[in-house]
Design a binder for these strands. Structure first.
Lengths: 152, 152
DNA sequence: GGTGAAACTATAACGTT
DNA sequence: AACGTTATAGTTTCACC
């Protein structure tokens, strides 16, 4: 599906999303035009979803990372949909998955401190209809936090 | 700490990491040179950590997302260090946190399918010294998966 | 913070294998 | 179907106001 040039392009753009096309071309060993066409095709195919700047959470007063597991009391489609849409809309929620296991959902949140977390969970989670068991875990250390997917 | 221009710059670059400096300048209402100096200062200060291309995991045969919680049997510094360094080095591990609660660690992994996951956990987790309880959760749906930090 | 200019880069048309 | 060359329009980057 992807040849060696595509894999090099994807790995390089994951490491530096603002590399110039010329530098990228030189790095992978293709002409600038050929490289450009491949990058556009990868964007077009949705393999490259987005270019973004990754920021330092602590420097933006988001030094506390929490992981919540939540179970719902009722599992009808409407309750679930409302819960999902509401939680998704919260800007402090970075990741939100429906998961297998004891809990129904896992929510990954970044806030300033424990006071902000208290406010978040009381005002934005416990107030939602049908919320059952909630467990909070706090990240003590970030041993790894990457977006870089392994290619191939 | 950050004024309105800085916040606009950070929000815009989170949404599009490859926007040209001229477009960014026009969007936030500053000259191209002033914008450029601010972006460089934010990079220099480490507020902007990295520019990256976000890829589609499913299109790269990484369609299965798993979250593991792991407890260690022994908590001496050496056992912990070795575990932390080894797990961090695995390319399929995107996030790896030491956490509060029943488990010691949370590991976020992307693999191709359940067979690859079986291989991962048997060859790369259970083989490590001092691994105690391990729980696996699989992401059924990705309701939200962002890197965009709320600013201000 | 703005202006302007030289050096560099993106983008697409066209020819080649 | 995919690569390379080349030309022009656009962008970066920096010295100076």
């Amino acid at each position: 599906m992807f040849d060696s040039y595509d894999r090099k392009i994807l790995n390089t753009l994951q490491a530096d999303g603002r590399i110039t096309n010329q530098q990228l071309a030189e790095k992978i060993g293709l002409s600038s035009a050929a490289t450009w066409r491949r990058v556009k095709a990868l964007e077009e195919a949705g393999v490259i979803r987005q270019y973004t700047a990754l920021l330092d959470a602590a420097k933006l007063s988001r030094g506390l990372r929490a992981i919540l597991t939540v179970s719902l009391l009722r599992h009808d489609a409407d309750s679930k949909k409302l819960f999902e849409d509401t939680v998704s809309s919260y800007p402090e929620v970075l990741q939100f998955f429906s998961i297998t296991g004891d809990a129904d959902f896992m929510i990954h949140v970044v806030v300033a401190d424990i006071q902000s977390y208290d406010q978040f969970i009381n005002e934005k989670i416990f107030t939602l209809e049908g919320v059952g068991q909630v467990q909070s875990h706090f990240a003590l250390r970030e041993l790894k936090n990457e977006t870089t997917l392994p290619i191939g």
